[in-house]
Simulated scan of single mutants.
Amino acid sequence: MLVAGSCFFNPVVTDHEAERLRMAGAPVHRTPEGTYRASAGWLLELCGYAPGREITPGVRCSSRRTLTLTAGPGATAKEFQYALTSMVANVRARTGVTLTPEPVCP
């Protein structure tokens, strides 16, 4: 099984979003630049993703961290990309917050 590592940045959120997410229990921190970032892992878990959950054939959340994806038998680059895209869409639909995948270096 291949581990892709952390796949999403903690998203920058507005002051209003930060307050709304905090009230829901989300970890939100202020950066040295004065912006707020919410926990990508918390947002994913709010949307039903969990350690070990299969996202697409062969692609699952790591058994240790929701925002780390692993590629097992049957995984393809297309399936991996679809997993990322569907996770972003589900978080946006549920919370209004857009996750940004971390860059992939070949």
Rank of each mutant, 00 (worst) to 15 (best):
P57V: 10
F8D: 00
C47P: 04
A26Q: 01
R92A: 11
V104H: 10
Y36R: 07
P57I: 06
T35H: 15
P101N: 13
P103C: 12
V97Y: 03
M23D: 14
C61H: 03
A38V: 10
E33I: 08
C105Q: 14
K78A: 15
G52K: 02
R92H: 09
G52A: 10
S86Y: 01
H16Y: 14
P106L: 15
V28C: 00
E17Y: 09
G41L: 13
G25R: 08
R60Y: 12
T100G: 02
P106K: 09
F8R: 04
P106W: 09
A89G: 03
V91M: 06
V12R: 04
R37G: 06
C47N: 05
F80Y: 08
T76I: 14
V97K: 00
R94D: 09
A38D: 02
L69M: 14
G58V: 03
M1C: 08
G48F: 02
K78H: 09
M23F: 10
T70S: 03
H16N: 14
T35K: 15
S62H: 13
E102M: 11
A71L: 15
L69Y: 02
T56Y: 01
R60M: 08
A50N: 04
M23R: 15
W42H: 01
A4I: 01
E45W: 03
S39K: 06
Q81R: 11
G96V: 10
G34N: 12
V12N: 02
G48V: 12
G52S: 08
R65W: 02
L21K: 05
T95D: 03
F80C: 05
A40I: 11
V91G: 04
T56C: 10
R20C: 12
A24N: 08
A38Y: 08
S86F: 01
C61N: 00
P73K: 14
G72N: 07
V91T: 03
A77Y: 05
T14Q: 02
P32R: 15
V88T: 03
T98H: 10
R94W: 07
V104E: 11
R94Q: 13
E102N: 06
V97R: 05
C61R: 01
E33N: 12
T98P: 03
T95K: 03
L44W: 00
Y82C: 12
E45P: 01
F80T: 00
V3Y: 06
S39T: 13
G48I: 13
R94E: 12
A38L: 06
D15M: 10
